[in-house]
Nucleic acid binder design. Structure first.
Length: 423
RNA sequence: GGAGAGAUGGCAGAGUGGUCGAAUGCGGCGGUCUUGAAAACCGUUGACCUCUUACGGGGUCCGGGGGUUCGAAUCCCUCUCUCUCCGCCA
């Protein structure tokens, strides 16, 4: 969530930036400032009251030690009166604090100054494209036809044992999937990331920390019996590893990579690009997470984009880098780049990675701080990105490398698959 | 799932209901000594909120929440987590 000091220091700027995300925050921001003032006043009153009570308690302690217990009665009465007042002051303070927090938690992150105020994905800015979009076949097939032809993925079987959106990978399809996971992890390791294997279920505090709660609770599967959420991305457990921590400067940057299955309910998205692997309830993803000092976070963001496009180049996939506009950027993000690959069979660009800088939005929620060389503590910046999401990569690999004889495997992947052709 | 024990500062580990934000040790930081380092010695070392231009105050925090009391790290209730034993089991 946005920090109070951010709002106090420059409320106009916060309002203007939120307008880029198409949020009219004028009333809310003024309400926040007003509540904050009232909260402070209430706190001062309460603190003064408690201070008096503390003094009296100490005095009574001394009297007791001197063995003059009877003399304490008057003070006791005085203290009791103070306590009655304190109760009211305290509940007033709590009420204001709750009201204030509720407003703060509901506000999305302030976008970076460079973010353009577009409405939809149509308005996103294409930063760069990798060369030509190739189509070797005259009439390339979509991956769902290819995976049926070569028996790689069985959607019907997944529906039978679970439901729609839970495909079963088979034979070379399953091996390709495993090869990609290993390839991505090895690449990340070589780039200096530390490997993590996180839990796939998280508690409420974790889901809140990265911003899934309370905003996107309909997106997560919830296990009611144990009050746990299935992770929609490894970002949630891997970032929350550092919740309530004060890191040393030497610990930064934290660079973690994790493979995990991801679970998304995708409520409300039925009928929209849901064919084949395009949108699933369960999918595999390798995620990179970084925690940096504020002054380095945007450099890190660019570096992460470079890293991800490097992967796409090794996979020989045509891609483009898209910078999201205000209307398309997520609740928690200050800046996001999407990487898209071209799937020849569908003649469509598919989003395979989303790399974001959250600045202090997540770290403020989870109290993730670092102590600089002068001994001052400050909120760290958090970033993450898919590197990469498997299903759409598989879709593009199948569609873009199809030939009449079968499907070619890119050279970089062959050591991991153990085969160079799908027949 | 059943029975028991526990949760204190970066770590280890004391703590009688009263001046305890908390002994002590280790670690960290600064200094003395040294050509330099180590050792030794001395000092210092939590987070958050808030008042004040400043100097400097006040408040909260001993796993979370609630209660008893003039006063709680210490007593009571409750939740969570950890450990030990038993049961079940990949």
């Amino acid at each position: 969530m946005i920090t109070l000091s951010q709002i106090r220091e420059n409320p106009e700027q916060v309002i203007q930036r939120l307008a880029i995300k198409h949020i009219d925050a004028i009333a809310t921001i003024h309400q926040i400032l007003d509540l904050d003032d009232r909260k402070k006043t209430a706190q001062k009153k309460l603190d003064d009251n408690l201070s008096q009570s503390n003094a009296i308690a100490k005095e009574i302690g001394i009297i007791f030690k001197q063995g003059k217990a009877a003399d304490a009665d008057l003070l006791k009465e005085k203290s009791a009166n103070l306590k009655n007042v304190a109760k009211e002051l305290s509940s007033e303070f709590d009420r204001l604090k709750e009201e204030l927090d509720a407003l703060l938690v509901a506000l999305p992150n302030v976008p970076h100054s460079s973010i353009k105020p577009g409405r939809t994905a149509e308005d996103n800015e294409i930063i760069r494209s990798s060369g030509e979009v190739f189509t070797k076949e005259a009439a390339p097939l979509p991956h769902w036809d290819l995976s049926a032809r070569y028996d790689l993925i069985d959607f019907g079987l997944g529906s039978k044992i679970t439901g729609a959106g839970f495909p079963v990978y088979k034979k070379q399809g399953a091996r390709l999937q495993r090869a990609l996971i290993n390839f991505f992890l090895d690449q990340a390791l070589a780039a200096g990331y530390q490997e993590i294997q996180p839990p796939y279920l998280v508690n409420e505090a974790s889901a809140f920390g990265t911003g899934q709660l309370p905003d996107k609770d309909a997106q997560m599967y919830y296990v009611q019996l144990d009050d746990l959420y299935l992770i929609p991305t490894a970002e949630v457990p891997v970032t929350n590893l550092y919740r309530d921590q004060i890191l040393k400067v030497d610990d930064l940057p934290v660079k973690n990579v994790a493979y995990s299955a991801c679970f998304r309910r995708e409520a409300g998205s039925y009928g929209k690009d849901v064919r084949g692997l395009n949108r699933l309830h369960q999918f595999d993803k390798v995620e990179i997470v970084q925690i940096t000092r504020p002054e380095y976070s945007y450099r890190t963001l660019e570096e992460m984009v470079q890293y991800v496009t490097g992967l796409l180049e090794k996979l020989e996939l045509p891609y483009r880098v898209v910078k999201l506009c205000g209307g398309d950027i997520s609740f928690a993000s200050a800046m996001t780049y999407d990487m898209e690959v071209f799937a020849a069979g569908q003649q469509k660009w598919l989003e395979v990675s989303s790399v974001s800088n959250f600045e202090t939005f997540q770290s403020n929620r989870m109290k993730l701080r670092f102590k600089d060389e002068t001994g001052k503590t400050a909120l760290a910046h958090t970033l993450n990105g898919s590197a990469l999401a498997l299903p759409r990569i598989v879709a593009a690999l199948l569609e873009d490398n199809q030939t009449a004889e079968g499907i070619r495997i890119p050279a970089a992947l062959i050591p991991f698959t153990g085969f160079d052709f799908i027949k």
